[in-house]
């Protein structure tokens, strides 16, 4: 290249001098917007190169930042995942506590509403066999509890104490097959006996076929059994049918959800 330029020194000199003087003219001439032509030319030459350089540098910078960002994001992701897990645990715990407080609040309200003295207790166990529908509570004779005392929740009747120990007691649920509760239908005022079926529902017996009982009707304690005070909610009628004898076959759903039973009140006076 240099050899070529030397060989063609006349033309090389001519081109060089021409370009220099054109640049000189450009530096004095104004283009559009009163900008020196030399500036326009320099811009036209330099700016694309600058743009390319900028794009490359910018691209490399972006790639690096993205790489660093990805690493930071991965780290942050791990941290946030752990945080989310912790928060989920906290949330679940708090929700449980809220529910517990809500239950306790209901119990407190019930305790204030019930005229008799009550003892609050917590369910700490359930029957080891499916044949018996019982739960164990954490209060016993030390709390002044005794056999046959009714156990209730704000939702309704739970059952009665069948065995009382010093610091615990066994509650026979109203769904137990050996349980029976004197009840009255809220609308028809018909009386009957709600017997446990050993399953999740109750069978209301001793309601003659002539009586008009409708599904959804509330069933409350009648007080006739001398175990449960009058007026406590027992459940709702689910189905009504004609029995094989003079009595209706009535099926009822307990008001209390025994699978979610946690806090109960034991009424000390029958």
């Amino acid at each position: 290249m240099i050899d070529f330029l030397i060989r063609q020194k006349n033309w090389t000199l001519l081109v060089t001098a021409t370009l220099l003087q054109l640049a000189l003219l450009g530096s004095q001439a104004n283009g559009r917007d009163n900008v020196r032509l030399i500036q326009l030319w320099v811009n036209a030459l330099i700016v694309p190169a600058e743009q390319v350089t900028f794009q490359i540098a910018h691209g490399l910078g972006n790639t690096w930042h993205r790489y660093v960002g990805l690493r930071q994001a991965a780290e942050e992701n791990r941290r946030l995942t752990a945080q989310v897990q912790q928060l989920t645990l906290d949330k679940n715990r708090l929700e449980g506590e809220v529910e517990s407080i809500r239950g306790l609040q209901g119990l407190l309200n019930l305790k204030e509403a019930v005229p008799t003295e009550t003892v609050a207790a917590q369910v700490i166990g359930s029957s080891p066999t499916d044949a018996f529908k019982t739960v164990t509570i954490n209060r016993g004779s030390h709390a002044g509890l005794g056999n046959n005392l009714p156990v209730i929740t704000p939702n309704g009747v739970v059952g009665r104490l069948v065995r009382v120990y010093s610091r615990s007691a066994v509650v026979q649920l109203i769904t137990d097959s050996e349980s029976g509760v004197g009840v009255v239908f809220q609308n028809s005022r018909v009386h009957g006996v709600a017997k446990g079926t050993g399953g999740s529902r109750l069978a209301v017996d001793y309601v003659v076929n002539e009586e008009k009982i409708t599904p959804g009707e509330e069933i409350r304690t009648s007080g006739e059994d001398r175990l449960y005070p009058k007026g406590l909610l027992v459940g709702h009628v689910v189905s009504v049918g004609s029995g094989r004898n003079i009595f209706k076959a009535i099926e009822a759903e307990p008001a209390v959800r025994f699978s979610q039973l946690e806090d109960v009140l034991v009424m000390k006076q029958q």
């Binding site: 006349n10 001519l14 001098a17 021409t18 003087q21 054109l22 000189l24 003219l25 004095q28 001439a29």
Partner: peptide, 19 residues
């Protein structure tokens, strides 16, 4: 005038003339 107008013009003329 602008510096280079005559410079460039006469440079080209001188180059051509001598060529």
């Amino acid at each position: 005038g602008a510096l280079g107008m005559n410079g460039l013009t006469k440079m080209l003329v001188g180059f051509l003339a001598s060529s």
